[in-house]
Computed example of a mutant assay.
Amino acid sequence: MQSQQRLLVVLAHPDDESFLCGGTIAKMSEQGVHITLLCATKGEMGRRMGNPILTTREALPGLRVKELKNACEELGISDLRFLNVRDKTIEFESFDLLAERIVKVIREVQPEALVTFHEKYGGHPDHCAIGRAAEFAYLNSGDPDFYPDPVFPAFKVHSLYFVLWHAFYDEWFKEYGLSRITEVDIAGTLQKKIRALRAHRSQTLAVPELWGNQNPSLPFLKESEYFIKGNSPTNIEEIDFFKTIERLG
């Protein structure tokens, strides 16, 4: 087991990390946490190619990978990996194969916490599909009989979190309340999040507020990010992912 705390983030597209949890990732990195981002696709089917146009449809995947690498530098993500699944097709991929590939990364990285999408509140078929596979991998990575690996032994992740997209916050709150929500204050890393979003130029040039004076009414530019607790105790108020781990041992 490594002495440095480790966080694995499993998402679907380049820019998911910046829009949904960029401030939290930057905050964790500032605290010395090692961040691994596992991105399922290269975003080749994204509707935006810049405004004005920056690239062609054929060249878009390469550009989006470059943009993601730049965003990772801003956020302090030191380990970027791809599953190389075709954009907008994750739901049609073999579920077992996806889960096995994520399990292998979990066992290699040995993270204390894993962040992904909720299968119901993902907001996009790719998001829901990768979240479902990542949760299944989380639940089974500690079982030595589940996809035995001669190199990396079974490893159980301590905590699971789902990004709570602003569009679904009210819906989740009405159904479950605050007991399973972790709110992370990102006031100190909001500017890093903004720089990471700007690194995704092909996708964010169409958001003029991001390039001028930041508009606080934009939900993804607020000073908090929210996560659904996948397994953490609901009676412990959390301000980041590792406080609960430290308290529980």
Rank of each mutant, 00 (worst) to 15 (best):
R180K: 15
V163P: 03
R101S: 09
L80Q: 03
L164M: 11
M1V: 14
A134Y: 01
S217G: 13
F241S: 12
E225H: 02
E238N: 11
F95A: 04
L160V: 14
S29R: 03
R86N: 14
L210A: 08
L160M: 13
E100I: 06
L114N: 07
Y176P: 00
F19G: 03
V33A: 11
V105A: 04
L98K: 08
R48Q: 12
L7T: 08
E246K: 12
G23E: 07
T89S: 05
E30P: 03
E171D: 13
R107D: 00
A196Y: 08
Y138P: 10
A167V: 10
L60I: 13
T24K: 02
N231G: 14
I102A: 00
S94H: 06
R6E: 06
L20N: 05
G212M: 06
L190D: 05
R198K: 15
I194D: 11
F242A: 06
E74W: 02
S202G: 07
S224V: 10
I53Q: 15
V65S: 05
S232C: 11
V184Q: 03
T56Y: 02
G23C: 00
L164C: 09
P52M: 08
V109S: 09
V103L: 15
G212Y: 01
F220A: 03
K192L: 06
G131W: 06
I53S: 10
P61Y: 08
N235C: 03
V109F: 08
R107M: 00
G23D: 01
A40E: 01
G212K: 09
G32L: 12
D143K: 15
L190V: 07
A129R: 06
L248H: 14
V65C: 09
G46H: 09
K69A: 15
S179Y: 00
V85D: 07
M49L: 13
A12Y: 10
K27C: 02
S78M: 06
R81E: 09
D79V: 05
D15V: 06
A40N: 01
